[in-house]
Design a protein around this nucleic acid. Structure first.
Lengths: 121, 121
DNA sequence: CAGAATCCCCACGGATACTG
DNA sequence: CAGTATCCGTGGGGATTCTG
């Protein structure tokens, strides 16, 4: 028996999942929450370059998909805490693998790009 | 000593690498080439829903980054073969992990989306 | 602190048709 | 077979400002 879902199939729902995972900032948020719950501002500080709007949107999307849980902390000033759900935590492995691959192959890729640019110049 | 590259840093080159990896069709091409060299049309057939233009662009980008090697096969009709380089092959693991995660968590995510849609309706 | 509200834009990708 | 050539839209993402 074949697997239930196949990303190669045009209409497979797994494609919508892949699309969410592939969204520009998803990987950063999942990684940043990997060490435990974080507040909005902590995330914003940790993930350099992200704007509040985009961070909010990414968080909402991950919450909708059941990867992140949002908790309002009572008190003043108001606090909100974001944490990975079990499902979200299970994505941590693959996400770390991808980001570590990116970090550890920068030189080769920059070199390849330079070579390619030269070759067509 | 810290690591040389850090995706959390705004200007780190690893971000451009991550960006390329995250491009919509990269994962499909890398996976489709995982079992060995393939021709253009084979890829187009395997990856359902991809258009020739987008496939070409994706292939070119991966070639520029040194992940894919393009070989013209002499003869008529003309043939072209695409294959992963060693670098590209090393990305296969992470890519497979991500796609398998997507395929194996479809039900949970669809359920979460339904719950979320309900909750705000 | 944790966003909401606006405005904006272009590059990513899609559809279709054509060709060496 | 393996692409080009056009045209086009759209929504993801950015900058900025404001607020409970």
């Amino acid at each position: 028996m074949g697997k239930a879902y196949d990303v190669m199939a045009a209409t497979c729902p797994s494609r919508t999942v892949l699309h969410r995972i592939g969204a520009r900032w998803t990987v950063f948020v999942v990684l940043a929450l990997g060490d435990g719950p974080r507040r909005f501002t902590q995330l914003k500080t940790r993930i350099e370059g992200i704007t509040p709007k985009v961070l909010t949107e990414t968080l909402r999307a991950l919450e909708a998909d059941g990867l992140v849980r949002r908790t309002s902390l009572p008190g003043n000033p108001p606090g909100v805490e974001y944490a990975l759900t079990d499902l979200g935590r299970s994505l941590g492995g693959p996400m770390r693998a991808v980001s570590e691959w990116a970090e550890s192959h920068v030189p080769e890729i920059l070199a390849a790009r330079a070579r390619y640019a030269d070759a067509e110049a």
